[in-house]
Design a protein around this nucleic acid. Structure first.
Lengths: 346, 346
DNA sequence: CGCTGGCACTCGAAGCCTGAGAGTGCTAAC
DNA sequence: GTTAGCACTCTCAGGCTTCGAGTGCCAGCG
């Protein structure tokens, strides 16, 4: 029943929501009648609005103030009414031009992506670091730092670089490290990290590791090196864009939001969830299980190599957000980043 | 003349400023008389306050609202009245305990320092990345990534690790890279980066570089590698602490501040300036040449190795800030970080 | 002569009222 | 089913009043 809206009601709802998105003000019947020439009088529209309010798609802040979409209203809008604009080729070019990635560090690239998202959308950009699982391994190197500490450098097939410091239980000599990396590079290049892990695990099972000291070192080291890396780190850029949105003129709301930005855990949670599903996902305000972003919506998309999900990115802004222009940007950005990580883009 | 304040006037000014710092409200004569038992009646204090207002240390928001310190008032307070509390040993221990640094990446450490500053002060922490000039070099390593790209890994004497990617004009073979790093490590270990640069420059002047291909590669590569690294990057943490300060209840003010945080250039400018001077420095509101942090004060201190200035850190908060407790924290943190970079702390 | 109590004065904040304007809901007519 | 008309409601802005905090000044006191 609740989705049983007639064609006319739907288009009035759409008009109201779009009007509200454009103006941030409650929308009255007069305005709808005038600006969206539906050939109906304000009175008729009032009737429809009353119905829509009963359905729970609209609400009035007070008796004489026009209507504002509810979260349910936005939900219906994005699910059933919204026409997502495709990017034209100029816009796609513009996005693509920002990704000159070869030989850059993963962090830099992700921060950049986040900045790009925020500056194009005028909201706030989020990028969650990939678990590298499905990235394709090209090269690994170990640099001895001090007793028991080794810097591991990965290069992915697409030329992205990531490095981290690991601790080894016993000191490993420079010579051993060289042998180890030679071995790994010979046997593992071209596999995804996931496959590498499996292979290592398999070899650890085999007897020979027990007797071959070098081999056991190799396995220990690479297991350590492949443990979760940037896992779950989130890059947030453009937070101050949010300050321009009239709905956050109230300090209390803003405080909550900035807390969320700084703590990141809510965002990580949402981004993680978006990895489960396919394509662009939209979280609205305080829908079930979402807290801490009242009045906001989050548009996310996972990015992934051909072999599986690895991370998520998105844009957060007020619920009264320009969905139709942000969605394709998020979508296309995720595609680009996927390709980059796959190494297909060079 | 303007500094010719009698002892009594000074202590009344001090009382007023401290009262204002504690309450964030304009301070009236009654309050001062009551809470700071100076043995004077409100009427007398009123007279003094009128004088202080004439001097420009105080101002009244309006006729019947008590007085508020001006920037000049704060300036006089921090320069002449403020008693800086020393940290007790427990507090020093607490700070020290946060610096377990060996083998960590420079960025991580700096971000941590910034977080610590913000969480202890309850304001916002800033740390500007060091120019590595005066850090003592222990070890350098080159990892070939792809044609013409090399990852450089530095280790400082204190065990901090930093790495960056550089481009070489011509491809350099793995073997050459090894020779180059061997050479550098042999000849340069224990020198400061500044000295290393000088040495390299000197060698470039010498004739032999022209004829020795390997040598010229070495020099080119190390020059590239030693170019400004994190130079000028600023780590800002705890921005949302600012939101709790009542003076930023007004959105307009806050917006300006967050813009400044996101753009960073004002902050970089101030932090740079603080490197010129010795010890803790305090920038107040919109004193000459300072823009973009109206209503805020910045407490900074450079940190340095034994050989010279290399970076700066600090805390930014409202002008009505608890100077006496933040100053020693900034000061001691800078000392700690200096020691760490010198490598004296392990 | 410096300090103090007293007192008139000022000014903002809060509360109240009012009028204007926007928007609704209902009803009766087309 | 749609519309015009109309009474009704509610917010917002402005003006007015009251209240209280705090001042500035003055006269008197030690």
């Amino acid at each position: 029943m609740s989705t049983e809206l007639g064609e006319r009601n739907r288009s009035i709802l759409e008009a109201i929501i779009e009007e509200h998105i454009a103006t941030a003000e409650p929308v009255g019947s007069r305005t709808v009648a005038k600006r969206h020439k539906l050939g109906l009088s304000p009175a008729t529209i009032r009737n429809v609005m009353a119905d829509l309010e009963e359905f729970g798609f609209l609400q009035s802040p007070h008796t004489s103030a026009g209507r504002v979409p509810t979260e349910k209203g936005y939900r219906f809008y994005v699910d059933s009414l919204l026409q997502v604009r495709k990017l034209n080729s100029a816009e796609r070019k513009q996005l693509e031009s920002r990704y000159q990635l070869r030989g850059r560090k993963v962090e830099e690239v992700l921060r950049d992506v986040s900045k790009t998202l925020s500056s194009i959308s005028h909201y706030t950009g989020l990028v969650m670091a990939p678990r590298l699982e499905t990235t394709v391994f090209r090269h690994i190197e170990f640099v001895p730092l001090s007793e028991g500490r080794v810097l591991v450098v990965f290069v992915t097939r697409s030329g992205l670089v990531q490095n981290k410091i690991i601790e080894t239980r016993v000191p490993v000599s420079r010579r051993e490290l060289e042998q180890i990396s030679n071995y790994l590079n010979r046997t593992l290049a071209g596999l995804s990290i996931q496959q590498v892990k499996e292979k290592i695990f398999a070899e650890m099972q085999e007897e020979k590791a027990r007797y071959d000291r070098l081999m056991s070192r190799t396995l220990e080291l690479s297991r350590e090196a492949l443990k979760e890396n940037l896992g779950g780190e989130v890059f947030i850029e453009g937070t101050s864009n949010i300050l321009d949105q009239p709905e956050f003129a109230n300090v209390e709301t803003m405080r909550g939001l900035f807390r969320a930005f700084e703590q990141k855990s809510t965002l990580i949670d949402l981004l993680n969830r978006s990895q489960q599903a396919d394509g662009v996902q939209i979280f609205i305000g305080s829908e079930p299980g979402i807290t801490g972003i009242q009045g906001c919506s989050l548009i996310t998309c996972h990015y992934a190599s051909k072999r599986g999900t690895i991370g998520a990115l998105g844009v957060i802004g007020p619920s009264r957000m320009n969905y139709s222009s942000v969605i394709p940007v998020v979508d296309y950005t995720a595609r680009l980043l996927s390709q980059v990580l796959d190494g297909d883009l060079d």
